[in-house]
């Protein structure tokens, strides 16, 4: 497949990015924001680039106070009320913040990590659909306010889509011309369908962002394959095989970088390239960036926002060679 600056034929760009009406649009909009554990540690570059680019777009992400782990480590597969306690606690924090700040802040909690998004959304949906369970959990968490069901969880990408990717393009000072970028979604952003942020079979939201930044979209059918997730702890080579498939298919389509919205996917695709090389000597490494890092690059932001030193496969040589990053 040839790289194109447009998304490809069947991948309609119309469907998603027509701007939808948002609440009162002052020049700046404030959202409650949930970072999650990884964004404060190994994925600090995800948060740094996100906050910086959001600010440029007039979006202020205000971290909710006293947040805890989103709860992903206790599975949500079963209808087990205990598993909803941790996510719900974060949602209640948000509810408090919205109440305190009155109309000045949106009633939607912005997330970045796809795992956190998935966990929080599933709990939110489950509790909205099952009032009896909500009542029981509210009772159990007697020291907290009752959750009233008024919070929505949105991923940062959705905010970009709803404002229109043109708004992103308007802030681009360093168009990423000549860069072939493939989007990788994994599972958590898309599935299950009723909480996914895009069509689970044919997502386009990251592709639209890539186009908006001036880079060429590389499409690969492997973009929605599983990265292996927590198997990475058990059996790093099993994950390396999956990463090998995903990365080499993208490379054969012509991709030079891969973007993602998930710290765990990023770890599996980026850090695990060591294991991939052990098993497949012919493998050429390829940088894996957060979509916000790509934005920061196109917005012409500096090292603080880019945070490339935390990427396992260093993207800087490539970007410098392409003239997209000034040599130091």
């Amino acid at each position: 497949m040839k790289p194109t600056t447009q998304t490809k034929k069947r991948r309609s760009t119309k469907r998603d990015d027509s701007p939808q009406p948002v609440h009162a649009r002052s020049s700046r909009t404030m959202f409650p924001y949930y970072p999650g554990c990884t964004l404060k540690t190994t994925a600090q570059n995800f948060e740094d680039s996100a906050l910086a680019t959001a600010a440029i777009l007039g979006i202020d992400l205000v971290e909710i106070p006293r947040w805890n782990c989103c709860g992903v480590v206790s599975s949500l597969v079963e209808n087990d009320r205990m598993h909803h306690v941790a996510p719900l606690r974060n949602i209640i924090r948000t509810q408090e913040m919205i109440a305190e700040r009155g109309g000045e802040i949106e009633s939607r909690l912005v997330t970045l990590c796809s795992m956190c998004t998935n966990t929080l959304r599933r709990t939110n949906l489950f509790l909205k659909e099952n009032p009896e369970d909500l009542e029981a959990i509210n009772d159990y968490m007697s020291l907290e306010d009752n959750y009233e069901g008024g919070v929505e969880i949105v991923h940062f990408l959705e905010i970009l889509r709803e404002r229109g990717f043109d708004a992103v393009t308007n802030k681009v000072s360093n168009p990423l011309e000549g860069l072939n970028a493939a989007a990788y979604y994994g599972c958590m952003l898309l599935r299950p369908k009723d909480i996914g942020i895009d069509d689970p079979e044919d997502p386009t939201i990251q592709e639209n962002l890539i186009s908006a930044l001036g880079a060429a979209v590389i499409d690969t059918p492997y973009k929605k394959m599983c990265c292996g997730s927590y198997q990475t702890v058990q059996d790093r080579y099993a994950v390396a095989e999956l990463a090998y498939d995903i990365l080499t298919h993208a490379q054969r389509e012509g991709a030079e970088v891969i973007i993602t919205a998930c710290p765990l996917c990023a770890f599996n695709l980026d850090d695990r390239q060591k294991e991939v090389r052990e098993r497949h000597p012919d493998f050429r490494s390829i940088p894996v960036l957060y979509f916000t890092q790509l934005m920061a690059l196109a917005f012409g932001l500096g090292e603080d926002a880019l945070g490339f030193e935390l990427n396992s496969v260093d993207p800087r040589p490539l970007l410098m060679a392409k003239g997209l990053l000034a040599p130091r």
């Binding site: 497949m1 690969t220 059918p221 492997y222 298919h249 054969r252 389509e253």
Partner: peptide, 8 residues
């Protein structure tokens, strides 16, 4: 479940 095309 899924079909995947080899790019080459």
């Amino acid at each position: 479940a899924e079909l995947l095309e080899d790019p080459v």
